[in-house]
Design a protein around this nucleic acid. Structure first.
Lengths: 145, 145
DNA sequence: ATTTGATTTAGAATAATTCTAAACTATGTT
DNA sequence: AACATAGTTTAGAATTATTCTAAATCAAAT
């Protein structure tokens, strides 16, 4: 048993059905791990957390499930420098802030329309379907959490 | 002999001197390779191009030189998904466009002030020293080059 | 000339990710 | 219900970009 809420379970099976894929316990558990702690974990971290709920899962399956979730559009990959890929189930348009001190990655909510406005400055021959915005720097003292 | 213009040679030795590092033939050649063809090559591609001008250079040295140039602020790393890091000697504020069809990466000039305006929407506790903006999508037919 | 420290080099090591092929599971069909 | 089919999971091997190591080379300063 995993901790997916009805709503999330529904979103998951809808998205999977839609692309002719099955809703498996592994996929549900990986998805619930992402939703439960929204700290942009790496595949390894997702593996560790998933293992505590489903001890027999393999790292290959975690990679498979994450890829499936990304392809379904339920999860976004966050690529920071040369670090391992992180995974983010926040589907609202937002940016990321990468703290140089701790390495942590934070969601930065963006004023509505801002992300899509960005694409408007693209010269006409480019047509973008995704916009990735990453800030890098430092957090005010005492605000690290 | 490499093909660095006086101006670029000066910028290089200034930047290196400034951080107490030496201006070596390897660093000059790698820098000139980047300036000569501004197509965001990977380290491997830089290695191949540098080798044709300086056959004895090693891949480790190419990595070392690229790292040095990045640390000096003369070159920027461009990280695209899980692909190998690419290198870009364009110091003007700009974004990147990653073509899903060809994998090519293009510089996208940004209206002046736009990149720094972006940082203004960051909540107060964040202080960003770099902003990375990557668009992903497709190029209009016939515009691939 | 000699010392010192920086740089380069080949090759080994690392680490994230992907691949492979076999085992397993679910689903639809007789 | 039995079977075929296709999708999924799994362990372990393979890949690949990058970093590390330690020795050799080079340059500057004494």
């Amino acid at each position: 048993m995993n901790s997916l809420k009805q709503m999330d379970r529904g979103a998951l099976s809808d998205a999977l059905d839609h692309s002719g894929q099955r809703t498996t316990p592994q996929r549900e558990t990986v998805f619930s791990v992402l939703l439960d702690e929204r700290d942009h974990p790496t595949a390894d971290e997702v593996y560790a957390r998933t293992k505590s709920r489903m001890p027999t899962i393999s790292i290959a399956t975690v990679y498979n499930c994450l890829e499936t979730l990304v392809n379904c559009g339920l999860v976004k990959q966050v690529n920071i420098e040369r670090e391992p890929t992180r995974y983010c189930p926040n589907l609202a348009p937002h940016a990321h802030f990468h703290c140089r001190d701790t390495g942590r990655v934070y969601d930065v909510p963006m004023p509505s329309g801002m992300m899509s406005d960005l694409a408007k400055v693209l010269p006409g021959e480019y047509s973008a379907d995704s916009v990735e915005l990453v800030f890098r720097g430092h957090l005010a003292k005492g605000k690290e959490k």
